[in-house]
Amino acid sequence: MLRESTPQVRDNISAGLPDSNALERVGKWMALHDISQSTVVRASRLSGGAIQENWRLEMNDGVSYVLRTDADAAIPTSCTREEEFYRYRLAFEQGARVAHPEGFCLDRSVIGKPFFILEFASGITAGHLLARNDTYVPDRAALAFELGELLGVVHRTPANHARAVFGTPPQSAASASIEHIRRQLDGLSEPHPALELCLRELEVRLGGASDAVFSHGDYRTGNYMVDNGRVSAILDWEFSGWGHPNEDLGWFTAPCWRFGRPEMGGGGIGPLQSFLDGYQEATGRAVRPSELVDWQALAQVKWAVIALHQEQRHVSGAQRSLELALSGRLVSELTLEAMNLLEIR
């Protein structure tokens, strides 16, 4: 897993990887668990990953891995690294295009907190580049089709396999998601009545939707890697679990994830219909664009609530970051777009 959106990296500077001793401990743990018998010679913080930390581990045999661990502060909607590791493994076993999950470490004596190791894959994730630079995406319809198809591979995971990781599915995946968002909103110190109004309207419109599938939960441009115009890996499974299939579709196609390309309904990188055609190819399920409008509104609300929690991580002092601080500035625009979408019908 490699994010090339920012060329700068920070070597061996983190609460998790402070010095060469930590690298030595990581190398020994990897050898003990038959991941690699080589020595870790360098650790570089990868760009991207607004919620968790990703580090490239370069071994003395020339092979690289990725170490994924907790950031200094988390948001309530994120699962643990142990849970995420097993979700990566479920996705990998079902044929999803993910980096191979090599192993999970709960032993805090290694770097001070849990982590897991992934294979290293090359590519670019930066949404603003993928949306606007045809060098990275020479065939936009083909990439959008592929992204729809890859999401369909995840959604067609047999229920018994998903149940082994997530437990019993909810009676209504849509209602469960809306209630989860409401709890996160209620946990904030300030009221947000416009978001509450949107959630109530969405509850009325979508609450009866009972289908539940293995859902990525954050499937969008920025959370997959593109190499030579094709997807090389789907990233960041920390929000995955049971979900209505349209929730992932609505999240990917929502206005908030088009990176300044509103005409590109397929995640800002390609035509919406190409994305839906790819999804139908993998699942046999045809979805009309009009079916996704309410789910896109839900995506706007969900991202607004996450942005509020991101801002709180900065304001509380738990993790000082300009990126996190600026997330809170998005909330008004996200809320207005959600209300506009809910007025379409």
Rank of each mutant, 00 (worst) to 15 (best):
T335V: 07
S20N: 14
A121D: 08
Q273E: 12
H314E: 09
E24L: 15
R97M: 14
S172H: 14
R42Y: 10
S20D: 15
R329P: 00
Q8C: 06
I75S: 11
I111A: 13
A254K: 00
G167V: 07
P7S: 08
G152A: 09
Y219S: 01
E203C: 04
F239A: 06
R183F: 10
S78V: 15
L326E: 11
D211P: 05
A318I: 04
P191T: 03
A162T: 00
L118R: 02
S36V: 00
Y88A: 03
D186Y: 04
A15L: 15
L143K: 08
W29M: 03
G317Q: 04
T125V: 01
M339R: 11
G243Q: 08
F116R: 13
R220K: 15
S14E: 14
S332V: 12
V287F: 02
V153Y: 05
R183C: 14
V26Q: 11
G48H: 08
R183I: 13
E53A: 05
L235I: 05
R3C: 10
E337F: 00
P18F: 12
R156A: 01
P138F: 01
G243Y: 01
R87Q: 12
L147W: 02
L106Y: 05
G103A: 08
H155T: 03
G207Q: 05
G127V: 04
R68Q: 11
R3K: 11
F104A: 09
I178Y: 00
P289E: 02
Q171N: 15
R10M: 07
S240I: 00
W55D: 15
E82F: 03
P114M: 07
R68I: 06
R345L: 01
P170W: 04
P193W: 03
L322K: 12
V213S: 03
I13S: 11
H128L: 09
F259Y: 10
L330P: 04
E343V: 01
Q52V: 05
Y279T: 01
L90G: 00
